[in-house]
């Protein structure tokens, strides 16, 4: 790996309902990071509709590329490679980004680099504060809940993951039960700030030596509690339910993360993924890290949610190590991180 070489990467991310393009210099300097969210289009369906997401990506893609190039104030000659999310995600959505990246790479005679979406989320932290190893990342999003150990750049070991729902998914489902509009996660977090965790919801610890997670039992417990309360005629406020649910989620996430950090002997901790925007989680993890003397990095909100700058940051290291993709690069819904 020759990190002395300067690298300017154009990065594209279209794995879900955000069309995003960024120009990143040397893996850390974000020259532009344009994010076009489709959330308004999907709201009325109560969730992301894959076909509609794909259609929006096609309509947006060159607009966003041009905007990212203009804002970064770079010419195509200054771009060294095109990086793109190859998975995981919605396959139809991924295909737009992947084929746009390959077309641009061909037109401009540049290498194309396929980036794992979760690697991108992890590398959002590198933009904030250079990664040091070994480190542990807690990835939390609508599709993922994972503990990932890294001994060096480009090396990812998934040591724990959810066995059922992802954290963000559990948030959205409980939010729907409470009748909150989509997307429910951020609203739940807001409500939780305003209520007390008066209900003792279960915590799924699983086996003593496991770093895995499970949230489906908690979700069912919330739904049952709501149902029974209604029958008995007592009412919990939405604030109390949200606070109690969030307390259970955060307790498990933070406790398992701290245990894994200790067992693995790391002193660097990262929080990544869309749910990293959750105030309650940020606060609890910050407190626990301070107590244990761990250095914790949490990206600012705009780097937590899906964005292309993080793909550019991760892609830069692949560029430096010569890990280029070829013309057969494809979108892969279930791509593994390794």
């Amino acid at each position: 790996m020759n990190q002395q070489n300067l690298a300017t990467i154009l990065a594209i991310e279209t794995s879900c309902d955000e069309t995003s393009v960024s120009v990143v210099k040397n893996g850390r300097e974000v020259l532009s990071n344009i994010v076009s969210s489709q959330i308004e289009s999907h709201k009325r369906f109560g969730g992301v509709v894959p076909e509609i997401a794909s259609r929006h990506h096609v309509e947006q893609i060159t607009f966003i590329i041009e905007e990212a190039m203009n804002e970064a104030n770079v010419t195509k000659e200054e771009i060294d490679a095109i990086a793109v999310t190859e998975g995981p995600g919605l396959v139809g959505a991924l295909l737009v980004g992947v084929n746009a990246a390959k077309a641009l790479a061909f037109a401009w005679d540049k290498p194309v680099i396929g980036v794992h979406h979760i690697a991108g989320h992890i590398y959002a932290n590198h933009i904030v504060d250079e990664l040091t190893f070994p480190l542990l990342t807690l990835v939390v999003s609508g599709g993922h809940t994972e503990l990932i150990y890294m001994k060096e750049h480009g090396s990812f070991e998934v040591i724990g993951e959810t066995r059922d729902d992802a954290v963000g998914e559990a948030y959205d489902k409980v939010a729907r039960t409470l009748g909150l509009p989509y997307p429910g996660g951020p609203r739940m977090d807001l409500l939780a700030q305003q209520g007390d965790p008066v209900i003792d919801f279960p915590r799924a610890w699983l086996e003593a030596d496991s770093y895995d997670f499970s949230f489906s039992g908690l979700k069912s417990s919330v739904i049952n509690t709501l149902h029974n309360a209604k029958q008995r005629g007592d009412e919990w406020t939405n604030e109390e339910i949200a606070a109690s649910f969030q307390a259970s989620v955060i307790d498990v996430l933070v406790t398992k993360t701290m245990k894994a950090a200790k067992d693995k002997g790391v002193n660097r901790l990262l929080l990544a993924g869309g749910v990293a925007a959750n105030k309650g989680l940020r606060q609890a993890l910050t407190e626990a890290s301070e107590k244990e003397g761990l250095k914790l990095t949490i990206p600012p909100l705009k780097l937590c949610t899906d964005n292309a700058a993080m793909i550019g940051a991760a892609g830069t290291f692949l560029y430096w190590s010569g890990k280029y993709a070829d013309d057969r690069l494809n979108g892969q819904a279930g791509l593994m991180l390794d």
Binding site: T62, I65, N99, A103, A107
Partner: peptide, 9 residues
């Protein structure tokens, strides 16, 4: 996607 992105590029 391939056609329009290449054309733009």
């Amino acid at each position: 996607t391939t056609a329009k992105t290449m054309a733009w590029g």
